[in-house]
Amino acid sequence: MTSPIEPSHVRTARASSEPILELRNVDFCYLAARRSAAEVLGGSRLHKINMIVRRGKAHGLIGESGSGKSTIAKLLLGLTAPQSGQIFFDGELLTPDRLAAFRLRVQPVFQSPLDALDPITPIGKQIIAPLLVNFNMKSSDCQARLAAAISAVGLSGEILGKLPHQISGGQAQRVNIARALILDPEVLICDEPVSALDMTVQAQILNLLSDLRESRGLSLLFISHDIRSVAYLCSEITVLKRGSIVESGSRDEVLLDPKTDYMKSLLEAVPNSGLGLETASPSNPCSQPAGRRDLPAEGW
């Protein structure tokens, strides 16, 4: 049997920036019995969601807790179905019979990297598990791909024999990404992948995701409440508020010229304190003392 998965170089040959994942008029709400719990946190229903993730691009989804952003992740991973509306993958409508194949091509990376790993199985076995389960491959046949996957995420081979409690949070997130990559997916759905990590580790993982997108032509849906990470990684941004999209557009449109008060208030709330990280603007926005609440918004 030849490799069950289409090699990625074939894919990258296709025109990039065509839609790969699309939500069209998607409505979703949890069943009535579940709703009371969800409503406590602001309700997780989605209303008329239209969104396109383009091939080879990183799409950012910004939203606060209760905005429904994790629900979108679940929909796009095929873990739940919308009440109405359609999901398209690679130009084709996602139907129940296509779900199994779809799930192999769209892989998740979640927030708590250690929770996503089985505490009693060595790392190496966990990374190749998707191959063993989905393609009946023998463990010995997976070694080349395993080596490629862990080197792609910047880990060394000695980690493979370790157990999850023996590695750091940053390493664990790399392991999760390697496990997603081993199936050679086309899309990574990253649900708050760096929120639980320290600043310097966050930077490492953001760099890694950015590199993977460029080198492999991966498409990313990057879901986060952290506007800075989204701004760094994504070329297109969608802003979600209580289950509806309030803004959507290119990175510059959304960040530099926000149309809605909601997005403006989000941007204002980002701690900035004039870290000197923003490009200098004519009227220096950082000329006021830190610690004042009347600090102006970013100097765009």
């Binding site: 600043m199 930077a203 701004a231 960040l255 923003e278 490009t279």
Partner: peptide, 22 residues
């Protein structure tokens, strides 16, 4: 290193600098 690990909000994205390891 902590400074340079913070992604900027505006301006062209540059590569985040972060010291290797933990």
């Amino acid at each position: 290193a902590l400074f340079s690990a913070v992604p900027p909000l505006s301006g062209r994205p540059r590569r985040l600098h972060s010291p290797a390891g933990s």
